[in-house]
Design a binder for these strands. Structure first.
Lengths: 225, 225
DNA sequence: CGCGTCCTTGAGCTTGGTCAAGGTCTGTGG
DNA sequence: CCACAGACCTTGACCAAGCTCAAGGACGCG
């Protein structure tokens, strides 16, 4: 029923803005393929990627309710994006079960961003990176995009560094480190986790914060698309 | 109408757990006075405070919907807390306007935690601390707890450090720094901002992410209590 | 008064940042 | 098919923000 509302889809090349900061877009976006990111930046060109949006994720629910964006959404890799207008969202909200599903989604997102805060505040950059990879593994597996513990990771090291709050040079070294420890392989935008248990132990990963135990509304959306 | 649902209130001394991790509390909590915090921790006793709850804030909405907590809520100072049962929440959700208000609240919280991520990833610890103080100033002003740019900040330096992802020693030094720069005064749990404009410039603070321009449901709750 | 909690300060060390150069890979045009 | 450009990755040397360990001081409470 939701996909019936998609009005159009669009392709974005890597690096392009999907939704600009401070604007008031009149559509909600759903990522169909590729990686998108929620970007916040400071005046002196420091930038922090504060969330990833993977296939199936809805990415600017908030504008419809809050009125304006305090961040921008950019394509981290080439992306295919579907839209539905905020008037459709209004319609969804008026239906009991869907209002609950929307609330569920935002609460999960909030939980994820708090886990990211823990990650930023307490883990070394090496473990922080490992933790991010574990998270991606589970989120992508939930939408069936992991095969043989391997999945697409098309970001540049600069983008990865901006996600982790470190410099690109340091991101590179930590990546080498994880490779040297035999935890991952990464080449040509394809990430392979060599031993998921080891990687999880290495960074104290516990997938429960992702709330994948229940079928989420977003998974429904994706599977039916 | 909401306050009619409060079933009881309770006092908590500083440091006590209000809601334990991994439990499934059957009540949603609203802070009436004091500071509470959302705490996440790692096995080796590293801890990160990932959110503050100030008077008027609702703090575990998520359990009613998500089913379990992946963090605990602790009293950062002595707190007075009101409860309403999750069955009341169900009731609220069934009413159109309230479902929207709940969604609004969680979206704002999510926006705040993304701003914290920017803070953690990109700002120096000194500016990070200044940014936190600016945020508190606005959030407390919204519930009328700021007088003459001065408000209660009853946390220890250890708690402040855990919020900012630094050590207590370093928190102490950065606090001295802010004092030396003439930006703030802090004694006896009372924080005074000497020049709000200067402090905001110092850390590039922009209050829009707090979405205070509209009256929030949580403010309604507080004012009527 | 004495104890516990919190705050303050110093010295040395480690993680991650900066600057700079060189290497690899891919796509494009001759 | 090769040469070149541009984007990305890699490595090294040095530097600084923030951490650790340790000791002493202030303050409030029984």
């Amino acid at each position: 029923m939701i996909e019936a509302c998609f009005e159009k889809t669009k392709q974005f090349p890597a690096g392009q803005e999907i939704v600009a900061r401070c604007t008031r877009p009149e559509a909600v976006h759903v990522i169909l393929s590729g990686y998108a990111g929620c970007l916040k930046s400071l005046p002196d060109r420091q930038r922090q990627i504060v969330a990833y949006f993977l296939p199936g994720d809805t990415c600017n629910l908030n504008v419809a309710i809050l009125g304006h964006m305090d961040h921008s959404i950019i394509a981290l890799s080439p992306c295919e994006v579907a839209y539905f207008s905020t008037s459709v969202l209004e319609e969804l909200l008026s239906r009991q079960a869907l209002a609950r599903a929307l609330l569920w989604t935002t609460l999960v997102d909030e939980g994820v961003s708090r886990e990211w805060l823990l990650n930023m505040g307490q883990r070394s950059s090496e473990r922080r990176m490992a933790h991010l990879f574990c998270e991606l593994r589970y989120r992508l597996a939930a939408v069936d995009l992991v095969e043989d513990e391997s999945f697409s990771f098309p970001l540049t090291q600069v983008q990865l560094a901006d996600t982790l709050g470190i410099t690109a040079v340091h991101a590179n070294r930590m990546l080498q480190q994880l490779r040297a420890l035999g935890l991952i392989e990464l080449k040509r935008g394809q990430l392979k986790i060599l031993d998921l248990g080891d990687l999880e132990n290495f960074c104290d990963f516990d997938s429960r914060y992702l709330h994948l135990e229940l079928r989420s509304p977003r998974q429904d959306m994706h599977h039916r698309t």
